[in-house]
Nucleic acid binder design. Structure first.
Lengths: 343, 343
DNA sequence: CTGTTAGCGCTTTCAG
DNA sequence: CTGAAAGCGCTAACAG
């Protein structure tokens, strides 16, 4: 028979609350609260007894109730539109960085299509901040002005780093690298499939593409530039258009790996062989990019490190320390694999 | 000048609450609440006015406050020890499955070393359930009895599927496949590096290894069996012991990809070439397994699908529908890549 | 040292 | 149709 009178012998499996503990221990909830939060002003004997009841009942304080009251949770929120290869790499990085800091991680994602509800990050932030999370990392947010009262760090945001603390990578240089690689192989008709137009990264990658072409004296053929949104399913359409052109490009630079994979797929559908008939370059170097046949040539950005840098920055912000830099830009690197060749 | 008297003209950037909205609209909070939740009994005109104020103020109701009161949030919790390649693949699957269901996803992870705090899943569940989340997916939980009042589905749990609704893959068969592949190549001295001993999957993989050996008439050399815990860093030690043996194994089957990667690393440190000097097989087929040199031969389990099946099952459970099956076991497949060869 | 009280932001009877 | 009031589980003054 259970030794605890409070919660243990009631029929239903209700969550055991601080009240249950208080009753079982014969003290007030306030005292229990003090014990939990190891505040001063509790007799050793009482404290011990309460602690024992807590163990017996398996009590764990409700994050929700606590946060509603105390506005301090030691939880960092990571707000993403969707759990896809990019955001999950970020997650891996944050997970590593969080170890030993005393913070816990709460990654939040709405259900829907990322495009469907613009401004999701503002909604989520409103729903969670002020309560539940002490600070947030926004992954590829669209909205600049958050109006948030908790510290926020953005990864690869809509606008440039001026607006809020930001972690990103050298998107422009990466795109130059990718395009120059294609140019060096002898390509002249190089298509570009853009990313989400509302993101700075996409604009910078397009700019890098145009700049590299310009530097090489190759005029930009606007019919070779298409709009994507960083998602694989949305890439196949424009990619097919591009590859269906009478004078089709001999190479395509897609603004991220998922689009590049979609492009390779479209090529396959059209009976085109990569890289023989068309070369493809991506951007990001998500693990999936190495799994394609042939493996994708891409620009590697240190996604995990972006996650960990964001955590570091956010923790500085939350602790009130003035961060040395409020904007971290990380270097990129060209990774040549099998999807590119001479035309 | 802002048209809203309530929150807009106070100096600090406080979260806008339902009270602010009520004041600005000149109604009671109860009415605002009704409008938000589209309850009956509000005049169209009032409703419209309130809605307008909500838009103006950018009000979004606090998930925390709401859940504390109503015990219904439309949020599914995914509790993981850490965001690593396995759990993030699961996440990708859940993210896809959630689309269009009306649920949102909240992935929660403590900071620390996974081993450090056994029973984390029970703690997290207590902290979040009853409030905040309507149901939970536990990824590789150690504790069987959750005592939870919300529906719970486990992925790859500690004990067999008898104890709670479970999604897993055919771990035993996968291990047999892996071992037989090695056997077929001509290996006889095959080492095994186990996973977390507290997980059923690890036990089943070891059993599959032993069974395949037995069937082939190869006695198990116990000195070739070592204990790991599914993490890369923890694998190098035992792997080094194994590969440092005078009569070292010609092949190692590691209980998951991360351990296999650690094993390849250990081999490299010892000046051994994979697969020339030693063959290595993993388990999982996380994207990272294709990125090693040489790419890892492994047993593929459909991790994303495991995530989506878990969501489907959980939603059935939450809606009170009796699920057809309360236990889903998915098939595995051998993926032969470059890390295995004849001895 | 301990308990009482108030209230975080919200939903939900229940009167008016 | 609308609002007053109670209370979800917890913490934070403040009395005793």
């Amino acid at each position: 028979m259970p030794p605890t009178p409070g919660a243990a012998d009631r029929g239903d499996l209700q969550r055991v609350t601080i009240t249950d503990v208080a009753q079982a221990a014969g003290v007030s909830v306030a005292t229990v609260s003090k014990v939990i939060n190891s505040r001063y002003g509790v007799a050793a004997a009482t404290s011990e007894r309460v602690q024992q009841v807590i163990d017996e009942l398996g009590y764990e304080s409700s994050l929700v109730a606590r946060s509603l009251r105390s506005h301090r949770t030691n939880v960092i929120g990571i707000l993403v539109a969707e759990f896809e290869p990019f955001s999950t790499e970020i997650l891996k990085g944050t997970s590593r960085a969080i170890a030993g800091t005393g913070y816990e991680l709460l990654a939040y994602s709405g259900g829907g299509r990322s495009g469907a509800v613009a401004g999701w990050e503002r909604r989520y932030l409103s729903r969670l901040s002020g309560t539940l999370i002490d600070g947030a990392i926004l992954v590829t947010p669209t909205v600049v002005e958050t109006g948030s009262q908790v510290p926020v760090v953005a990864i690869d945001p809509h606008a440039g780093p001026a607006h809020m603390p930001t972690v990103d990578s050298d998107n422009f240089q990466g795109a130059v690298l990718a395009t120059e690689h294609l140019l060096a192989l002898g390509h002249r008709r190089i298509g570009f499939l853009s990313g989400r137009e509302d993101l700075e990264s996409s604009r910078l990658r397009e700019e890098g593409y145009r700049t590299a072409l310009g530097r090489a004296g190759v005029p930009v053929d606007e019919s070779l530039v298409r709009v994507g949104d960083y998602r694989q399913e949305s890439a196949t359409g424009p990619a097919r258009e591009l590859l269906g052109l009478t004078e089709r490009p001999t190479a395509v630079f897609a603004a991220n790996d998922l689009s590049a994979i979609g492009t390779m797929q479209a090529a396959g559908d059209l009976g085109l062989s990569v890289p023989r008939d068309v070369s493809v370059v991506g951007f990001d170097n998500v693990p999936e990019s190495a799994l394609t046949t042939p493996p994708l040539t891409t620009v590697s950005q240190p996604m995990q490190r972006m996650g960990s840098e964001a955590v570091t920055l956010l923790i500085q912000l939350m602790s009130g320390t003035d961060p040395i830099r409020t904007h971290v830009r990380l270097p990129v690197e060209l990774v040549v694999r099998g999807s590119t060749a001479r035309p």
